[in-house]
Design a protein around this nucleic acid. Structure first.
Lengths: 163, 163
DNA sequence: CCCTTTTAGTTGACATTTAAACTATTCACA
DNA sequence: TGTGAATAGTTTAAATGTCAACTAAAAGGG
């Protein structure tokens, strides 16, 4: 009796502890969607994922965001945000506005051109993501989002206790 | 009647289409666990996640792996694998063995020192992951792994159709 | 008011990663 | 058997990312 044909990674994963197996699968899936998104952003809009990510954060906050708030939301270091903001500013897609009440602070906002460019990208981007997740039902997506929410909270609580 | 207090990201996410919302949550959770793992690997073993990942792949394949097979399994580009392998080779943790039947090919294997070093790391690493996922029950982890498996297969099939 | 500490952001050195060009080898096959 | 196409791996440039040191400004307490 022949064994069922399963691909190499899946077979390797199955030896692992449940948590490791799940984690490897999360890594793989994430990487797959991320690589695809990166490629499409490059092909369609000659831009990159971090640039898109920064603009997406600003789109959600029309009044603009401080550098450290961008850093926190994008979960990257401050120096990184400085670099990406510099480039987007050069391209005229975002602007740094001084905060009159605290001269250390920059408020970063989308320019009109930035909003227009982002709108075009976001529409296609949403389609890519919806297509990627079309395999799952709404109920399944909600279930998964719920589990991830709990997981996220738990891991954050671990950080506090040993960081 | 006051609205329930939810944090800023969660509120922002809730405006989005289900697929986008789930994707953002996957990104955030992944990043969180990955950053934590990276930090612990650095603190405890003065190594990095990609080095650990490459060694983990080799551990699963005692006979060694070709560069392109490593690249495929780690889902990173070939150039990247070359760099990481170079460093691990310098440190004496892996070795490149020529393939007599095809002179283009390197078979990369863990050295004895590499196996020993990896065993120590893997044990702690598993503990970190188990702890991180302790929030979820076995049943929940299995459910999530199943959904991710389907998702992964689906996205891979998309790649074929428009790449 | 002065001095110390904290906070916001930038800079510089360096590691990682990708994409594309390149070298060497093998394969397909006329 | 010779030649063009495909494959394995490396190299290179540019973007991204971290970390630690730095500057400037604000906050807090005597």
């Amino acid at each position: 009796m022949p064994k069922p044909a399963i691909d190499t990674e899946t077979r390797a994963e199955s030896d692992d502890h449940g948590a490791i197996r799940l984690w490897l699968r999360m890594l793989a899936t994430n990487r797959l969607v991320e690589t695809r998104t990166r490629r499409l952003l490059q092909e369609r809009f000659a831009t990159t994922l971090p640039r898109f990510d920064l603009m997406a954060q600003l789109e959600r906050s029309p009044q603009g965001l401080r550098m450290n708030e961008l850093s926190r939301r994008m979960m990257v270091t401050g120096g990184n945000v400085t670099g990406i903001t510099d480039m987007l500013e050069q391209e005229g897609l975002v602007e740094r506005v001084a905060d009159p009440s605290d001269r250390r602070v920059w408020r970063v906002r989308l320019t009109r051109a930035g909003r227009r460019a982002f709108a075009a990208m976001a529409q296609e981007h949403e389609r890519w993501i919806v297509d990627a997740f079309a395999e799952l039902s709404t109920r399944e997506m909600n279930a998964m989002a719920g589990l991830l929410g709990r997981l996220k909270t738990h891991v954050r609580s671990l950080e506090g206790s040993d960081a």
